[in-house]
């Protein structure tokens, strides 16, 4: 064997384990979901078949359609708030914290909660937002309300709040990354030529940080589209999302129906991601 062909083979051997993991635990499962979405459910287990019943039942059921719309609502609201918050935080860190050591420390402060348990982070809202929680105590003591406000917890408000709390890291990190890459000379040049602070932001900083925004948005969209834990914990009983619907269907062993929902969910997510990628070219960032 020549040295060159060994080099080629060696490369493929090196990437083989990682590729294998994703073929086994990502590609194969998704192919199986697509396959099973055409199967039938006979009341207690799934049976191989080819039927479109699962799909027709999704699009003809007003409950399912509403659940999808509700999920979009969560996606949009979470995206909107994480973007605003994430951008302001990243902007502050990148341009207003001059000392590099402080920059790193404050960035770590923003990222550490991401490495802790999501479940615990959601539980920790109970003493704050609950019926006898801090916010209600404050409102009553100030005389702003007579009765405790009920919709603070176990509501759509709580769900969006919980998701913004859990996922803002995914917006901050990529935006911070792209802001840090902006050549500071460009900003000085713009200012020297008489651009106002807002003009500098609009003409230079915003376009150059667009890839970061795009990457953050992709994360938020995909995380929230499949959400069911936050919806379950922060939303109480009534709130619905596609993820929660799928989970409930699995609970009653309706795998084909759950699979069909998952396929629609995946397609919608892919369309959203493609849409983002069409608007912004992120390849420079990768």
């Amino acid at each position: 064997m020549t040295a060159k062909s060994w080099k080629g083979l060696e490369t493929y051997l090196l990437v083989a384990p990682q590729t294998l993991i994703f073929l086994l635990f990502l590609v194969l499962p998704i192919l199986m979901i697509v396959l099973v979405s055409f199967w039938q459910f006979n009341g207690y287990s799934m049976v191989p078949a080819f039927t479109l019943d699962n799909y027709t039942s999704i699009f003809t059921s007003s409950v399912t359609v509403k659940t999808f719309l509700n999920t979009f609502k969560y996606v949009f609201l979470t995206w909107f708030f994480t973007l605003i918050i994430g951008y302001l935080v990243a902007y502050f860190l990148a341009f207003y914290v001059k000392d590099q050591r402080w920059q790193i420390i404050l960035f770590l402060v923003c990222t550490v909660p991401f490495w802790t348990s999501n479940i615990i982070r959601m539980i920790s809202w109970i003493p704050v937002l609950g019926k006898e929680g801090l916010v209600n105590q404050l409102l009553i003591n100030l005389g702003l309300v007579q009765q405790p406000v009920e919709w603070l917890l176990y509501s759509d408000f709580a769900i969006v709040l919980g998701m913004v709390h859990l996922y803002n890291f995914f917006m901050i990190a990529p935006i911070f990354n792209s802001l840090m890459r902006i050549d500071r000379n460009l900003i000085t040049a713009a200012q020297d030529m008489g651009a106002s602070g807002f003009q500098t932001f609009k003409e230079i900083i915003l376009p150059l940080s667009a890839p970061g925004i795009a990457i953050g948005s992709i994360f938020i969209v995909t995380l929230v589209m499949g959400e069911f834990v936050t919806v379950r914990m922060m939303g109480g009983g009534q709130s619905a999302s596609v993820g929660k619907l799928i989970q409930t269907q699995i609970g009653s062993l309706q795998y084909p129906l759950a699979a069909a929902n998952a396929v629609v969910l995946l397609l919608v997510t892919l369309i959203l991601v493609m849409g983002i990628l069409r608007v912004v070219d992120i390849r420079k960032e990768l």
Binding site: F25, L26, L28, P29, I30, M32, I33, T222, L223, M225, G226, E227, F228, G243, I246, Q247, I250, Y255, A258, A259, A262, L265, L266, T269
Partner: peptide, 9 residues
């Protein structure tokens, strides 16, 4: 990929 798909798949 939405996490629920990994779990379901």
């Amino acid at each position: 990929v939405p996490s629920v798909l990994i779990s379901l798949g």
